[in-house]
């Protein structure tokens, strides 16, 4: 389209040019072809274009590019700042997580230690009590054995006495104490 359109307009322009060329309104014909107007046009063209070029290259364009650069820097700076802040926030979150995990493991450890300590102490106490009870039981058993032995020793005497008096009552005979106790101890040995 860029090529076609100027071509079409050029043709219409040419047609207009030819049509006007035939009208003898102006002696010079087409004003564009009047060579006497060329020098002032070109002198002013050169002058104004140089002024424009100098104004643009020295004043206007540096100003615009400065503003654009400043804006770009500002945007880059802000993006960088946002990036660092994000990193900081992430680091803080990580530190928080780490602290939390540490605290959790510490709490767990403390719990474990306490549990162990309690269990140890309980075991210790239990052991102590156990040995004490054992010794007491042993003592008591010793005493019971002693009492039993004493009772057993006393028993043969009592039995001999009972047998002696029973014999006396039944048969009316008085046996010697030594014989009775001998029989009693024999019987008791057999029964035991």
């Amino acid at each position: 389209m860029r090529i076609l359109k100027p071509a079409v307009t050029s043709i219409t322009g040419l047609a207009a040019l030819l049509a006007m060329g035939s009208t003898p309104a102006h002696a010079a014909g087409l004003p564009q072809l009047d060579v006497s107007t060329f020098p002032p046009q070109l002198i002013w063209l050169g002058l104004t274009f140089v002024v424009l070029y100098v104004t643009m290259s020295r004043i206007a364009l540096p100003k615009i590019s400065q503003v654009l650069e400043e804006r770009q820097h500002r945007i880059d700076d802000n993006l960088k700042k946002a990036e660092t802040l994000k990193e900081e926030a992430e680091a803080a979150a990580q530190a928080y997580e780490a602290a939390l995990a540490k605290a959790r493991s510490k709490a767990h450890q403390i719990m474990l230690e306490t549990h162990n300590a309690i269990a140890e102490k309980a075991a210790e106490t239990q052991g102590e009590v156990g040995t004490r009870l054992e010794s007491q039981i042993k003592d008591a058993e010793g005493r019971i054995l002693e009492a039993k032995n004493a009772a057993m020793a006393g028993l043969s005497a009592v039995a001999a006495e009972v047998a002696l008096s029973a014999c006396q009552k039944v048969s009316g005979e008085t046996l010697s104490e030594a014989d009775v106790s001998k029989v009693v101890s024999t019987v008791m040995e057999e029964r035991q």
Binding site: S36, T37, P39, P40, Q41, L47, T48, T55, M56
Partner: peptide, 20 residues
Amino acid sequence: VDASLTNAGLFMVITVAAIS
């Protein structure tokens, strides 16, 4: 050389002033 300010020259000046 004819360096007169013409209507063309005036509008060149106006154009440069307008851009500036």
